[in-house]
Nucleic acid binder design. Sequence first.
DNA 1: CAGATAACTTACCAAATGGTAAGTCTGTGA
DNA 2: TCACAGACTTACCATTTGGTAAGTTATCTG
Lengths: 196, 196
Amino acid sequence: MAAQTRERILDTSLAAFGLRGYDSTSLDEMATELGITKQAILYHFSSKEHLLTATIELAVAELGSALGGASKPQSRGFQRIEDLVRATFSLAARRPEVLGLVRLVTRQGGVASGELASAMSVMLGDAVRFVEAEMIAGRFRRLEPRMLLLAVYSAVIGVATEPEVMRALGLEPDLRSLVKARRETIEFLRAALIAD
Amino acid sequence: MAAQTRERILDTSLAAFGLRGYDSTSLDEMATELGITKQAILYHFSSKEHLLTATIELAVAELGSALGGASKPQSRGFQRIEDLVRATFSLAARRPEVLGLVRLVTRQGGVASGELASAMSVMLGDAVRFVEAEMIAGRFRRLEPRMLLLAVYSAVIGVATEPEVMRALGLEPDLRSLVKARRETIEFLRAALIAD
DNA sequence: CAGATAACTTACCAAATGGTAAGTCTGTGA
DNA sequence: TCACAGACTTACCATTTGGTAAGTTATCTG
């Protein structure tokens, strides 16, 4: 029962931190939700901040496995971007809390963010090299690679995790709309990226 | 001294809520920062939630005046988009907390978000009509207008308010980089939007 | 069977939180 | 000058917060 509880706590904290935020989530709340006491949480994770660190680790792992599969080095040109965007939207639909936590950490920074930051650094470094190679090969439009990636990243994460804005646009953030949003995002990126 | 204090409180709360978040900001903290007592805040705003409502009102006003000037109906085609993006980046540099609050509210939703939501609905409604007109005129690529706007919105807000991601990309989020980010974002959008 | 260890719970606690009640001071109009 | 209202402060308060200390129970080991 031990390891299971640990995992259940991490599951709950990922959802809570990712969807509601760190300060907005209390340990008591989570404990009640899990049907255990707060002290059981503090038995497995010695403080709330340690729990956050472990939660970020979990999110990094999930992010890696979700996007790692999609970024097969063999696929080239825009196909690879499309694969990544599809994987990101799939993750947003299946586990919105993971991207929520990514956003939380990338915004607030903070102590525990080191791991996610470095994991993202690696992923983004690979991405920069990929984009540069595609530009040199003449398949992608020539833009500043890092800024381009920042725009792509922002567009995808934004579309995938901004339900209130979708509502303001008169779109319900259901699965069908997400599929549509994914298709349109890919078309948008295709237009922006592919060299004439 | 009365009206001044009220405004000073709103200034501080806009910065605090917009940059740190609602739950992460305590009234005592803000009061100390202002050199007054918490009860002085509660004298002007009967509860923390009322303060948030008033703060959102202020942010809506600032957002409106910052972007309203840029969206002159006379400018057409991509120029109008460029004006808007410039205005957004200018706001991000001058008063990052305003966009921070917009993001906070659009993400969390909540009770007090009604005003911002409706203000954004109006702005986005105008934008949808503008984009549709440009598409019909053949100046913009044909994409789903609302999804397109969501992607544009996400890209701009993301680039303008995502300092940690910039750091992960090896870019310092200083003024020079922001200028560069603005230029690249505009180029990115130009490529994505303008019909061949 | 003894006892150690892992996995908890019960019982607290100090600090911080949003909020109430009751004063205090200062200017202002009658 | 005197009442009075506006703009606060001082004094509290109940609740919630993250966290500690001390059990309790079950399982495994020698």
